[in-house]
């Protein structure tokens, strides 16, 4: 058993590194999209908010596996040249869109949790809507976003396991390869894979919980 561990651990760590990279890239890109979508959704224009609500519900209502296959198979099949991407960009795009729906809901809930009296006071001193958002609402909302963002980050880390299906050499894929070399040691190899995920996710969850006691949190609409 120990020789299996020592011989497969380097492969698994390579996979973990890939999981780490993808999750960092997608949490960054997904948060960018999500912050914009979430802020736009707090506006009062139905022309903007309805399509965005449809976007969020469409992604929330279907499994991530479907998003991945649609991005990986459907977009390149359109024949548009800049949509002809490989597995890695497809995985990053699908995961980022998936992340953005969670982030958007958090951003919206946090902004709406700032009492409206704050906005009214800021506007009455002559601030524009943007100034009010930037100087008054966002600084208060950001603190409330931190704890649920930890939860989203863990969802994304776990979500990266699914992109193994289009051939990204992340942790699950590395585990599958290792089982081909040691077909009798499935429990050891998948157990190690699970432990590596645990080692990555558990600290994030703990930090999120610590942040919740420190900054408070927003209740998300289920």
């Amino acid at each position: 058993m120990f020789d299996v561990i020592s011989s497969t651990l380097p492969f698994l760590l390579d996979g973990l590194w890939m999981t780490f990279k993808i999750s960092l890239i997608t949490i960054f890109l997904g948060s960018l999209i999500g912050v914009v979508v979430g802020m736009l959704r707090t506006l009062d224009y139905a022309v903007i908010t309805y399509p965005l609500a449809a976007y969020i519900h469409a992604l929330r209502g279907t499994p991530f596996l479907i998003h991945l296959y649609l991005v990986y198979f459907m977009l390149p099949a359109t024949g548009i040249s800049w949509l002809q991407f490989e597995a890695f960009p497809a995985a990053v795009i699908a995961l980022s869109l998936y992340t953005s729906t969670y982030v958007a809901e958090i951003v919206r809930a946090a902004i709406e949790a700032v009492p409206s009296g704050q906005t009214e006071a800021a506007r009455s001193t002559g601030m524009t809507a943007l100034q009010c958002m930037w100087h008054v609402v966002l600084p208060q909302a950001v603190k409330m976003m931190i704890p649920p963002m930890g939860g989203v980050y863990v969802i994304i880390i776990k979500g990266t396991s699914i992109v193994s299906v289009i051939g990204i050499a992340e942790l699950v894929r590395a585990g599958e390869h290792a089982t081909q070399r040691h077909p009798k040691e499935l429990m050891v190899i998948y157990g190690m894979t699970a432990l590596l995920y645990f080692a990555y996710c558990y600290p994030v969850l703990r930090i999120a919980r610590w942040a919740e006691t420190k900054f408070g949190s927003v209740r998300l609409p289920s």
């Binding site: 880390i157 396991s161 699950v172 998948y190 995920y197 969850l205």
Partner: peptide, 10 residues
Amino acid sequence: STPLLIQIYL
């Protein structure tokens, strides 16, 4: 703290 996929495999 672990993905569902790994739980299914295990």
